[in-house]
């Protein structure tokens, strides 16, 4: 398919400005990296509402928690690695346990982060964040979904972690897109297999469905931005009606989005599942297309996973 592309980090930066215009309680807390995560736009528009703490993510989360406790709406913006790992205990204690209204933006989530290698990628942040009992976890698929999720985040009650990518990426949604917390939505119906995607691999899922149609296989495609709380009803319905699921994520397949789906499937409607994602290994620096192929994330691999799941269906 010929996708129009838009920069994910640029969407993040513009979206923060947009909510800043709407609500003057919105603050951005930076730990350096302004140019990388494009909070430069917010800083230029609202210098007085930009809190810069330097390369000190633990302090960033603590300061954001304190600001939230004083009634502000702080967005702590840094790379997914530094947020979810460097400041993990600060997030656990001062944000998640204390149910503080801090919005944590894990930018540079996943592996498509501009050929910078493992230290600037993050494949296990969803796992860490969704294991926190009070945390809401959202992954984003394209520039429009980022805008919608950031807009939603202003009014969210409680701890919130949002994964955002970096690079120019296919724009899947149009201006009519509406984000609903905890809800997945069918982009395409199909009775043979359900491809359920969270995050930036969504266009690959849609392309895989086209490949499968060419073989006479009808694949349904779901976009499910909210990883936690997961849309258990949609998943159980897909498992019951269709009976084969492929989970698709830009994250380690262990303990991530696919695992969250599997938890629902085994409890409510057991059916064959396949997992597209990083297969429990670290990535590396390379062009995005090369990485996608190397980690078997591309449409042909998704189509192959769909066939495997269908083959294991009962009856």
């Amino acid at each position: 398919m010929n996708w129009q592309k838009a920069s994910l980090r640029d969407a993040l930066g513009r979206s923060l400005v947009a909510i800043g215009e709407r609500d003057d309680k919105v603050l951005v807390v930076n730990a350096d990296l302004r140019n990388s995560v494009k909070t430069t736009y917010f800083m230029e528009r609202f210098p007085d509402r930009t809190i810069e703490v330097g390369i000190a993510e633990q302090n960033m989360i603590g300061v954001a928690a304190g600001l939230a406790m004083m009634g502000f709406i702080p967005f702590a913006v840094t790379f997914a690695r530094f947020a979810s790992k460097r400041a993990a205990d600060q997030i656990s204690m001062s944000v998640d346990y204390c149910r503080t209204n801090v919005r944590i933006i894990g930018a540079y989530a996943g592996i498509f982060t501009g050929m910078q290698g493992v230290s600037q990628q993050m494949i296990d942040d969803t796992a860490a964040m969704r294991a926190m009992p009070n945390m809401t976890v959202i992954d984003t698929a394209d520039a429009r979904e980022i805008a919608a999720v950031i807009d939603y985040a202003v009014g969210h009650e409680g701890p919130l972690y949002i994964r955002v990518g970096r690079d120019d990426w296919p724009v899947v949604f149009d201006g009519a897109y509406v984000f609903r917390l905890g809800k997945g939505h069918w982009l395409r119906q199909g009775h043979d297999v359900a491809l359920i995607s969270s995050g930036v691999l969504l266009p690959y899922a849609l392309e895989a469905a086209e490949v499968l149609r060419g073989e006479g296989i009808e694949a349904g495609v779901v976009n499910m931005p909210t990883v936690k709380p997961i849309d258990a009803d949609l998943i159980a319905d897909a498992a019951n009606r269709i009976g084969a699921i492929v989970a698709i994520e830009n994250h380690n397949v262990q303990a991530g989005f696919g695992s969250a789906i599997a938890e629902v499937v085994v409890a409510r409607a057991p059916c064959p599942m396949e997992f597209i994602g990083i297969q429990n290994e670290y990535s590396q620096s390379a062009p995005n297309d090369d990485l996608a192929e190397h980690h078997r994330l591309t449409p042909p691999h998704i189509a192959a996973a769909a066939r495997r799941a269908i083959a294991r269906k009962r009856g």
Binding site: I61, G62, A65, G66, L67, M70, G71, S92, S94
Partner: peptide
């Protein structure tokens, strides 16, 4: 603030101090 995982309280107090001044 819930504490005991040491080293975190001063950051939150700082956030509160900055917030108070902003208000």
């Amino acid at each position: 603030l819930t504490t005991g995982s040491l080293g975190q309280g001063l950051s939150v107090a700082l956030g509160m101090a900055i917030g108070a001044r902003r208000l």
